[in-house]
Computed example of a mutant assay.
Amino acid sequence: MNDHYDAQGEAPGISEHSGGGLRSYLIGAGFATILTLASFWASSTQLIYGPGVPILLGVLAIAQMGVHLVFFLHISSAPDQTNNFLALAFGIFVVGLVVFGSMIIMANLNHAMMPMNRLMQMQR
């Protein structure tokens, strides 16, 4: 038995489900195209209740991210993907921390700011 292969006869870190062949990329491109066209349709049609459009676009955007993670970045729940999944989770955490932290800081600064009419009176 060759030392470069694991017990199942595959190279370490490479399996049928984690690697991406041309077929996987084409399926992912098809799903991504369909979701993109659905987003353009949803934003331009009158068939959907107006206030529900942003929610639908958010759902389609999350689905698009899922397609990219699975078909192009090959992120899965397989045991050999633990490090990739943890790196993704940490990246999402950091981005969320920066975005929501910035929103909290800006809201606090806006609350502490002097009203514009009083600022204009002080300049006269």
Rank of each mutant, 00 (worst) to 15 (best):
H68K: 02
F85M: 15
I92P: 01
A112Q: 12
R118P: 00
I75S: 02
Q81N: 15
A112F: 01
G101M: 02
P79C: 00
M116C: 07
F72N: 02
V95L: 14
G91L: 02
I104Q: 11
I92R: 07
H74D: 06
D80H: 08
M122D: 10
A107I: 08
M103A: 15
T82F: 10
M116T: 14
M120Q: 14
L119V: 07
M122C: 00
H68R: 01
D80I: 00
A89Q: 11
A107H: 03
M116V: 14
H68A: 07
I92G: 05
F93E: 06
I92E: 09
N83V: 12
N84L: 06
L88P: 01
V99L: 12
M116K: 09
M106A: 13
F71W: 09
M120W: 05
I75T: 02
I104D: 09
F85S: 13
P79E: 06
N108Y: 09
I105L: 14
V99H: 06
M122S: 09
F90R: 06
T82C: 05
P79Y: 04
M113Y: 05
I105V: 15
R118E: 15
F100N: 12
F93S: 08
F71V: 01
V98P: 04
I75H: 05
S76F: 03
V95K: 08
M106F: 14
N117P: 07
S77N: 12
G66Y: 03
Q123S: 06
G96E: 04
F85A: 12
L73M: 11
H111E: 12
G96I: 07
M106H: 11
S102P: 03
V70E: 02
A89Y: 08
N83W: 03
S76T: 15
P79L: 03
F93M: 14
L69A: 09
R124E: 09
A78K: 08
M103L: 15
H74K: 15
S76Q: 03
F71H: 08
F93C: 06
F72E: 02
N117Q: 10
V70I: 03
M120R: 12
F93I: 07
A87C: 01
A87T: 04
M122G: 01
A87K: 08
M122R: 12
V99T: 07
L86F: 13
F72P: 01
H68Q: 05
L88C: 03
L73V: 00
F85N: 06
I92K: 04
Q123G: 02
L97R: 04
V70T: 02
G66M: 04
N108E: 10
A87M: 10
M116F: 11
N117I: 10
L97H: 01
F100G: 02
V98M: 11
A112V: 04
L109R: 14
I75Q: 03
G91Q: 06
R124T: 13
